[in-house]
Amino acid sequence: MVKLLKKIVVHSISRRSVVKILDVACSSKMSRVLIKPYIRLYKVNQQEIQHPKYYRSLKDFFVRDISPTLRPIDQGADVVVSPVDGTIADLGFASQDRIILAKNNTYSIAELLCNQTTGEFNGGFYLNIYLSPKNYHRIHMPFGARAIKHKYVPGKVFPVNNLGVSTIKDLFVKNKRTCTIFETQAGFKFALVKVGALGVGKIVSNYQEGEWLPKGAEIGRFEFGSTVILLFQKGMFIPEETLQPNMEIKMGQRIGKFKG
């Protein structure tokens, strides 16, 4: 009965009409009055934000920028950094063309990446990063590379928090998302998937196929709720040994390196 009630709640709040109402409400000037309560409710780090009066709406606050000095980028030549602030939901190595993203729920690599890949990612390392409401929601390049394939997939907007993940089967391939495959100068490939969620009006991508993007460059943002999934080509990436589920990480922080 509890599981059924959870499904009813998740499906109800994820309906297009509800999402549209949320988007309009959070974009209005009147929503500015919600910024201070939002900061208190989600314990947003106030040292990293401007004064609330500088933001036009709650959505404007949510997609806020921060000073680059607050997120130094590890400049090591082979070092790969986190593209976002967030919490590691899951990590590991792909097996038999599948990865485990949460609660022992497995996903096909081909399906997750919108069928843009062959078997080059099978056996590769993956990292699932959940961005909570308190986090900085802009996305940056984890390593200098060229965008060789990019695709947007329309879909649902189920919440990607524990409620959504534990209730909706195959959530990460049902929600709207963008899938981009990058290739480094040395020929190493990695994929970055931006997964939308409840309240996401847009998944913004600030690049095009064929464009070269340096490490640390801002490449997009979420407008409410989100997850980023990184997947690396087999045998080309060495993750940091300290990475583990439920660990908080910051954009620009070292998460591993490519083989030299």
Rank of each mutant, 00 (worst) to 15 (best):
G123T: 04
G187F: 06
N135R: 12
G123R: 00
T106F: 11
L131V: 06
F158E: 08
A110P: 00
F190R: 01
A102L: 07
F121A: 07
L101V: 09
G199R: 00
N175Y: 08
Q116V: 09
D97L: 06
N135V: 04
N135M: 08
T117R: 00
A145G: 03
K156Q: 14
I139Q: 02
G199T: 00
I168R: 13
I168F: 14
V173G: 10
M141Q: 10
Y126C: 06
N135Q: 09
Q185G: 14
V193A: 01
C179Y: 04
P159W: 01
K156F: 12
H140C: 04
K176N: 08
K103Q: 11
I168N: 13
E120A: 10
S166C: 09
I99C: 13
N105Q: 15
M141D: 05
S95Q: 15
Y152V: 05
A186L: 09
P133C: 07
G124T: 06
R146Q: 08
F121S: 07
H140K: 03
T178C: 09
S132G: 13
V153P: 02
L101W: 04
V153T: 13
Y136G: 05
I168M: 14
L131G: 05
G201Y: 04
K149S: 11
H150R: 14
V193W: 01
R138K: 11
Y130D: 08
Y136H: 07
V160Q: 13
K134R: 15
G124C: 10
D97H: 14
A191Q: 03
C114G: 07
D170L: 15
N161L: 01
V165K: 06
V195Q: 02
H150Y: 12
A110C: 06
A102D: 12
G196L: 14
C114I: 10
C179N: 07
V200T: 04
A186P: 00
N115P: 00
A94N: 04
N161Q: 07
V153K: 10
N105R: 13
L163V: 11
A110T: 11
N128C: 15
Y126N: 05
N105P: 11
C114Q: 10
P133L: 06
G199S: 00
T167M: 05
T118D: 15
P159Q: 02
K149P: 01
